Simulated assay, not measured.
Amino acid sequence: MSLHEDAVLVLKGYEGRGADEAERAAQDGLRELYLEHLASYPDGVYKPCGAGHVTGSALVVDPARGRVLLTLHKKLGMWLQMGGHCEPGDATLARTALREAREESGIAAGLTLLPGGPVRLDRHPIPAPCNWHLDVQYAALAPAGAVAEISEESLDLRWFPYAEVADVADTSVVRLMEATLARL
Rank of each mutant, 00 (worst) to 15 (best):
N131F: 15
P125W: 12
D122Y: 11
G110A: 02
S154K: 10
E153V: 12
P127T: 15
T112A: 11
W159V: 01
L141Y: 06
P115R: 07
E152H: 10
Y162A: 05
E164A: 12
V147M: 05
T112K: 13
D156K: 03
R120P: 09
L114W: 00
H124C: 07
L111H: 05
L134P: 08
Y162D: 06
A148T: 05
A144E: 11
S154E: 06
E153N: 14
A146C: 09
E149D: 14
G145E: 07
E153M: 12
V168W: 00
V136A: 03
F160N: 02
C130E: 15
W132V: 11
P118H: 05
V165R: 00
A146E: 05
G116N: 06
A148W: 08
I150N: 08
L141K: 03
R120K: 09
V136W: 10
A163H: 03
V147F: 02
V165K: 00
A128C: 14
E152D: 12
G145M: 04
S151E: 09
W132R: 09
W132I: 09
G117T: 06
W132Y: 14
A140S: 07
I126R: 14
D135H: 13
A146S: 08
E164R: 11
L134W: 11
V165I: 03
A139Q: 00
R158F: 12
P143T: 05
D122G: 11
P125E: 10
L111M: 09
Y162L: 00
E152C: 07
H124A: 06
A148F: 10
T112C: 10
V119W: 01
V147A: 13
V136R: 04
N131K: 15
N131P: 14
D156G: 06
L111W: 06
I126L: 13
V136N: 03
N131R: 15
G117E: 07
A166K: 01
D135E: 15
A139E: 02
A142R: 01
R120D: 08
L113T: 02
H133G: 13
A140C: 07
P143F: 00
R158V: 09
Q137R: 13
E153K: 14
Y162W: 01
P129M: 12
P161V: 00
L134N: 08
E149G: 14
L113G: 00
P161F: 02
D122L: 10
V136I: 10
D122N: 13
F160W: 04
F160A: 03
R123G: 08
D122V: 13
G145C: 07
A166Q: 01
D135N: 15
